[in-house]
Design a protein around this nucleic acid. Structure first.
Length: 484
RNA sequence: GGUCUCGUCGCCUAGUGGCUGGGCAGGGCUCUGCAAAAGCCCCUACAGCGGUUCGAAUCCGCUCGAGACCUCCA
């Protein structure tokens, strides 16, 4: 397997730290609202990556995706009388922690439901930790950083001393930072801040009125508060996978500051690196424009399902662009993806039908398999893989393959589908639709009329079929009724 | 304004020096009374202008254009 590593800015040969085992940590959602389709691209990328590591790389994989259930936004939206509070969360109480939990567990469930619909399987995860379950581990890490001299306390909060760190270690491994812009001693108290500005970031935020908080005593000072955003992933990654792990994933915006700060914290606190590979997916645009609420092109998965889109088509469409390129999400593109996907599905069905032909060399099938594997092994070039599939289908229509070859081809499609997961590797289902008897009768009458060359009558009866929601697919020997 | 990315056939998407990439749409043909469906075929593009090279979509420069980030966003 080869992967683009943002640490080196090059495509590198991937070798896991522990032979045969790949440990992947993916930054998951902050559960303060429904995930949108752009969020889902990041999760689908991580899903595809971990599948490729298993299926193509042959590794066993430990895949961890965290759920951030404590941050500025979850606190804001769960605050008493927040306009974002929905009745589905339950009743608000005077306990901020309880309100936080109600809001985040609601959206966490929605998230789990979403990714399951998109084909991301629960059983593929090694763990899905919630940040609030790892507060003690975060406190340990903060204490370590403080003892090592890279953190300081100010107004009840604890900050990471970036200026000091920069003098000892490289800061800006993932993202070119303009250090001329460093304002000495400037602090970032928020989880949200200027991206290209290196400032002291907060490790532990002092409790504000009516906010949820956890007890913490450091250096004999009582510091009730809650964790900063970056510390969460460091602590959970270390506790669950151990540092360094093999691959850290996320969307491009997480390079800085989130992952950069994670690297600094883990090194300053644990003395070890975070990960050998950092891999990022690019953003998604909708109809060529950035997704935003004001443009009206901001879609959650639910929105798209309500519009009648098939999640398989969404999955296939998103995978048809290389993860590191901007994906232009369009409804026409979804239609395109659907048709392409179904053509492949049709080919798979045809491979289940026996022919008895024995024409092509077996070598073509070996080439097909190796080309496919190579395309995925080469930094997950999914568009290339899809191209290879279509080229193969065109060169070797299913009815020209021998039975043995069809079996072999099906084995390859089965492998491919363990990655894409948008097809059914099975014979075409004989859909015994409940066609009402009277509709069938109309169909029969039409067929009779047609055979008797009473075409006007036949056409009239076809209109009647249409009115009843069916269309007739005629062949030489008979007809088939299909629902519209 | 600053930083950065990118401009490939009507649309989407591969392709980093040489062999007409793939999908969707569109057109034609076969089949058919017509249609639907299916199959086959066609559609030879790389923003523009210079340069490097035997040869450039692919490298360099300039111009034009688009988008992103700099404010929350995956």
């Amino acid at each position: 397997m080869k992967l683009y590593n943002t640490l080196s800015k090059t495509v590198e040969q991937f070798t896991p730290i522990n032979p045969g085992e790949v440990r992947i940590y993916s930054c998951g959602p902050t559960v303060y609202n429904y995930a949108h389709i752009g969020n889902h691209r990041a999760f689908l990328f991580a899903d595809f990556l971990h599948r490729a590591m298993r299926i193509i790389g042959g590794y066993s994989v430990k895949w961890v995706m965290n759920i951030t259930d404590i941050d500025d936004k979850t606190i804001r939206d769960s605050a008493l009388n927040s306009p974002e509070w929905k009745v589905e969360f339950g009743k608000q109480t005077n306990d901020p922690k309880e309100n936080l939990k109600k809001l985040t567990s609601f959206y966490a469930q929605e998230f789990l439901q979403d990714i399951s619909v998109l084909g991301i399987k629960k059983e593929h995860f090694f763990a899905m930790p919630y940040a609030t379950d790892y507060i003690p581990q975060m406190l340990d890490l903060i204490e370590n950083i403080y003892k090592n001299g890279y953190a300081y306390i100010s107004n009840g909060s604890i900050y990471f001393n970036v200026g000091l760190w920069v003098s000892k270690e490289k800061y800006g491994k993932l993202f070119a930072i303009d250090f001329d812009n460093i304002i000495s001693g400037s602090r970032i108290d928020s989880d949200e801040y200027a991206k290209e500005q290196a400032s002291d970031f907060v490790l532990w935020k002092a409790k504000k009125d009516d906010e949820p908080f956890w007890d913490f005593t450091l250096d004999n000072q009582y510091l009730p508060g809650r964790p900063g955003w970056h510390i969460e992933c460091s602590a959970m990654g270390n506790h669950i996978l151990g540092l360094p792990f093999d691959i850290h994933t996320g969307a491009v915006d997480l390079r800085f500051p989130h992952h950069e700060d994670e690297i600094a914290q883990s090194k300053a606190g644990y003395g070890v690196d975070t990960s050998t590979f950092f891999c990022y997916n690019e953003f998604l645009e909708v109809e060529g424009k950035k997704m935003s609420k004001s443009l009206g092109n901001f879609y959650t998965l639910k929105d798209l399902l309500h519009k009648g889109l098939d999640p398989l088509d969404i999955r296939f469409s998103l995978l048809s662009t290389h993860y590191a390129s901007v994906h232009n999400f369009t409804f026409f593109g979804i239609e395109s993806a659907k048709k392409a996907r179904l053509r492949i599905q049709e080919y798979i069905h045809e491979c289940f039908e026996l022919s008895g032909n024995d024409f092509h060399e077996i070598a073509i099938i070996d080439t097909f398999e190796s080309d496919l594997k190579e395309s995925i092994a080469d930094d997950l070039h999914t568009p290339k893989a899809i191209e290879i599939v279509f080229t193969f289908m065109k060169s070797y229509p299913a009815n020209t393959l021998s039975n043995i070859q069809k079996n072999n081809v099906l084995t390859i499609f089965d492998m491919l589908n363990q990655l894409f997961d948008v097809w059914k590797i099975s014979p075409k289902e004989k859909v015994e639709l409940a066609i009402p008897e009277y509709v069938l009768e109309i169909g029969r009458q039409r067929w009779e009329a047609k055979k008797n060359r009473e075409f006007q009558k036949a056409d009239e009866l076809r209109d009647v079929l249409l009115q009843n929601g069916f269309t007739s697919k005629d062949s030489k020997d008979g007809f088939e009724l299909l629902p519209l």
